[in-house]
Design a protein around this nucleic acid. Sequence first.
DNA 1: TGCTCATATATGTAAATATCATATATCATT
DNA 2: AATGATATATGATATTTACATATATGAGCA
Lengths: 126, 126
Amino acid sequence: MSRVNGTLFRSRDFGTIERFIEPCILLLLSREPTHGYGLMEGLEKHCGEKVDVGDLYRTLRRMEHDGWVNSAWDRKENQRDKRIYTITEEGRAFLKHAVASLKETDELIHHLFRGYQKVYPESNAI
Amino acid sequence: MSRVNGTLFRSRDFGTIERFIEPCILLLLSREPTHGYGLMEGLEKHCGEKVDVGDLYRTLRRMEHDGWVNSAWDRKENQRDKRIYTITEEGRAFLKHAVASLKETDELIHHLFRGYQKVYPESNAI
DNA sequence: TGCTCATATATGTAAATATCATATATCATT
DNA sequence: AATGATATATGATATTTACATATATGAGCA
């Protein structure tokens, strides 16, 4: 627990979406097959803040286990080995589902904004 | 793990926001002090689907511990005892912070939508 | 050569949260 | 007397996140 400007916070930030990294990964892999480390820059743009590297690699292995991505080693001379991930049809299906779910989430958020605006009209919630 | 229309899902639904119930509770309590059971109908409108009752009561006690709400027993004749929760100034501050965080979350979601629309133009993501 | 930094892929562990089940008790209605 | 709605909780487990650490290679430089 910490206190910022008089407001209490618990260890985790508020407002994050569980496993939001997964559709972000799938979208990036929809553009082109990439390895874990290479995904990071793009992910930071999509997911905001910093991406936990350990979380990223574990997520990729889990997504492979779930059948949403495939991986193959890219072994080249004068270059570190890279595990290249490719999106599967199942992965595209999940991404589509995720986008639909996020639309619902988005509606809930805006419902809250509207309610907040009503109760606290001086704020500019919307 | 389950499979719906060929798409794999893990046990939890995708797209849920961690502790989204908390700003929803605080918004409802901003309107009037209420007891746990009484919050449920309003919460289902705010949080979508069904609200886990056990989660609700545990969350309320945790929020009281954090100083965001106060509680007092309402003991009346011919009526079950109710623990009435009231929002505090700290609670209002957290609600304000939560709304601001959710605006950032909302931007991330829409960033993903725009990216999705680019890669899959036939979808109507936005 | 030895040093450091960026690249690259992981695992270990603990804490926070969600989910599902269960317990308990009262009031109103049948 | 039994059932269902009201009302407040706890127990156990699974899931996810956060933070730390391990390991190894290639590039650039003194």
